[in-house]
Simulated scan of single mutants.
Amino acid sequence: MYTIILVKLAIGFIGLWIITFVIGRKEIGQITPFDFFTSILISEIVGNTLYDKNVTYAHLIYALALWALFAYLIEFLTVRFVKIKRLTEGRTVLLVERGEINQQLMRSCKLDFNQLMTMLREKDIFNLVEVNYLLYETNGTISVIKKPEFDQVRVKDLNLRAEPSSLSIPVIEKGVIQTEALRGKYVPEEKIRKLAREQGFQDMTRIAYAEYNEDKDELTIIDK
């Protein structure tokens, strides 16, 4: 019995991992109503088969494969057809326009002012007066455009020279060199070792974490 549970759990784990990549990373970063329904159903498929002796490994694999195919088909259709996308994901709602709150739309979204203010505070906005436009996104978050008088001053507004932002790439973690920690960006191992040696690190295992800045061609190192 314990072996059967172990095998089914392993199949379920691998199956869920594959499904996540088949239907896209959006499942993790952006939960829509359809995504929520999918996650519940998949957990039911795996959970209900673990202790059922009448459900074989083949049944479990078949159920996961069938649902993965169905979910992928829905994702494909939502990309191709706008109406289906609206049906499965809903539409972004304009709750505040030019500083005016649409309370009717708030009620239809099942939102009250306490919930709205909580989401605003998470964006460092503590007063509704500051809001010019507010969009209630399909994943349950909000996007806000402040009124001009409350907006932050940008560098170009002050006619100051701004240095472009640069990307730092993790290249060493717990003493292990990672030449491609970011997919699509390769940093040669010899370059990593050379920059580390320049800072007095002959032994890479002494490094807890290191980031490589391509623009400055330098390594930022955190010692163990």
Rank of each mutant, 00 (worst) to 15 (best):
M1G: 12
Y2A: 10
T3H: 11
I5N: 07
V7L: 11
L9D: 11
L9W: 12
A10Y: 10
G12Q: 03
G15P: 01
G15N: 01
I19R: 02
T20A: 12
T20I: 07
F21M: 08
V22L: 08
R25K: 06
K26D: 07
E27Y: 04
G29V: 11
T32R: 03
T32V: 02
F34C: 07
F34R: 05
F34W: 06
D35Y: 02
D35A: 04
D35C: 05
F36I: 11
F36V: 10
L41V: 13
S43D: 12
S43M: 12
S43P: 09
E44G: 15
N48L: 06
D52G: 05
N54A: 10
Y57D: 12
Y57E: 11
L60I: 04
Y62K: 09
A65R: 01
L66D: 07
L66C: 11
L69G: 15
F70T: 09
A71F: 01
L73D: 07
I74H: 00
I74Q: 01
I74R: 00
E75C: 04
E75D: 06
T78L: 07
T78Y: 02
T78Q: 08
K83I: 14
I84C: 06
K85M: 11
K85T: 10
R86Y: 15
R86C: 13
R86V: 13
R86W: 14
L87V: 13
L87P: 02
T88E: 08
T88M: 15
T88F: 15
G90L: 00
G90C: 00
T92I: 15
V93P: 00
L94Y: 13
V96Y: 03
E97L: 10
R98E: 15
G99E: 05
G99S: 09
I101N: 04
I101S: 05
L105D: 14
M106Y: 10
M106G: 06
C109F: 09
C109V: 07
C109D: 05
L111G: 04
D112N: 05
F113T: 08
Q115Y: 03
L116A: 00
M119H: 05
D124R: 14
F126G: 11
L128I: 05
L128V: 03
E130H: 04
V131P: 02
L134W: 00
L134D: 00
L135A: 12
Y136E: 01
E137C: 02
T138L: 04
G140K: 03
G140F: 02
T141K: 14
I142A: 04
S143I: 07
V144H: 05
E149R: 11
F150S: 04
Q152R: 02
Q152Y: 00
V155D: 13
L160T: 10
L160M: 15
P164Q: 06
P164L: 08
S165A: 14
L167N: 06
S168T: 14
P170D: 08
E173D: 10
E173W: 08
K174P: 08
V176H: 15
I177A: 03
E180F: 12
L182D: 09
R183G: 10
R183Y: 15
G184P: 06
E189G: 08
I192K: 01
A196H: 01
R197L: 10
Q202W: 11
Q202S: 13
M204Y: 06
R206H: 10
R206F: 07
I207N: 02
A210H: 00
A210V: 00
N213A: 09
E214L: 14
K216R: 13
D217W: 03
D217T: 03
D217Q: 07
L219F: 03
I222S: 12
I222A: 12
D223C: 08
D223M: 09
D223W: 06
